[in-house]
Design a protein around this nucleic acid. Structure first.
Lengths: 210, 210
DNA sequence: TGATTGATTAACAAAATTGTTAGTGCGAAT
DNA sequence: ATTCGCACTAACAATTTTGTTAATCAATCA
């Protein structure tokens, strides 16, 4: 019908194309021309809406950092489940979030390496994580006092969780090549991995019993 | 003394500068001019010795893939130690290797993402890893049959090891910001981490006992 | 209607980056 | 000593990539 005047449309199309391009190729590898082409607009439009490649990039970055704060919040989990269930739920939610944003970890890691000052932008995220850790630590302490689980440092546990969950995504092509045909699909492998990681974490907490 | 004729010298200086630049910024982010400057030569020399940025890059890549094959070999570990010790040794060697090549994991991950066909270049590495896994699996099977350890899939164990060991390096600036002042230095944290990872892996294998 | 506004385009300009070339100087071999 | 080859430089050329501008087009509104 109308040949133009889809302002919202083109802007979001550019944003979507840009997210894809930046995620896949990083800031340096991304080309504004490719982004424009993928969005189906002339590359002048990209400058019209976002002025520079840099500003467009910043826009994507801040959006994604917000998204990150959410998963951390959601990992706090439902009110007063028993410890084991909350951990199970937290690990699975974290895994699922990454699974739904597979390029995000690599992107964050690379961009924080490229601009270490951006580690501070994650400060907000880390504050949330901090109170989450406090809660968790208290709970572990209680359980341990009652002899219901092993004593453990919640921060270490968190690093274990993130390490285990992030790796199959951040190193996807390599792991894919390595596991090869052992699973009917990479997603099947990931499903296995999610369960395995939950068990690994719970295993670290479990009291050895007869 | 002599103003020129340091052919070996300049070539290796370019290689060293290139490795650093490529590792830090990736292929796309690296600038041949920066490499030349860091090496203390005119950027024409870079083309003189390596013709193109691409060829220089390939050179670095293949060198590093060789280095990688070695660590995998060395992870096979000393002949006939008991299972626990071999695993301990394998995990620690892997950790130490990454520690001595801190940018390597990020580099490999990024470049394999950028050129998935390069996953095949790792085929060699994976063959070696394959036979290592076979050995390990047999040993685990024997131990498990005797009730000396839990039954486990060696491949899963390997993924656990790599996940846990790689993360504190690939996400260094983030983890650094997160652990903050809890450790006197990041290296102290890493030392703790190495031990913890060994225990985590051994813990997965351990028979729960009274 | 006709003036205004915002979206859009094509062509262009500027900057950055890679790659080349012609020539210089030094040392070694004949 | 002259020639030859190699390392090297400086200037330049080519290409790629980002950013700009002037003109167009369609819708809206006065």
């Amino acid at each position: 019908m109308d040949k133009q005047n889809h302002p919202q449309d083109t802007e979001t199309r550019i944003l979507q194309a840009a997210e894809k391009e930046f995620f896949e190729k990083g800031y340096a590898g991304a080309r504004t021309a490719s982004i424009a082409e993928a969005a189906g607009v002339t590359h002048a439009m990209l400058h019209y809406y976002f002025r520079t490649k840099d500003k467009l990039f910043e826009r994507i970055v801040s959006e994604k950092i917000d998204a990150l704060a959410n998963i951390v919040l959601s990992a706090i989990g439902d009110g007063d489940l028993p410890l084991e269930d909350r951990i199970r739920q937290g690990v699975e939610r974290h895994f699922d979030f990454i699974s739904a944003n597979r390029d995000l970890p690599r992107f964050i890691v690379n961009e924080v390496f490229a601009h270490p000052e951006r580690a501070e932008m994650l400060g907000n995220v880390q504050n949330i994580a901090g109170s989450l850790l406090n809660n968790l630590q208290h709970e572990i302490d209680e359980y341990a006092a009652k002899g219901l689980c092993r004593q453990a440092d919640a921060r270490i546990l968190l690093i274990d969780i993130v390490s285990l969950n992030v790796f199959p995504f951040i190193a996807a092509p390599i792991v894919k090549a390595a596991v090869g045909n052992l699973y009917e699909s990479y997603d099947a492998f990931l499903e296995m991995r999610k369960k395995e990681n939950v068990e690994t974490i719970l295993g670290k907490l479990k009291i050895s019993r007869l």
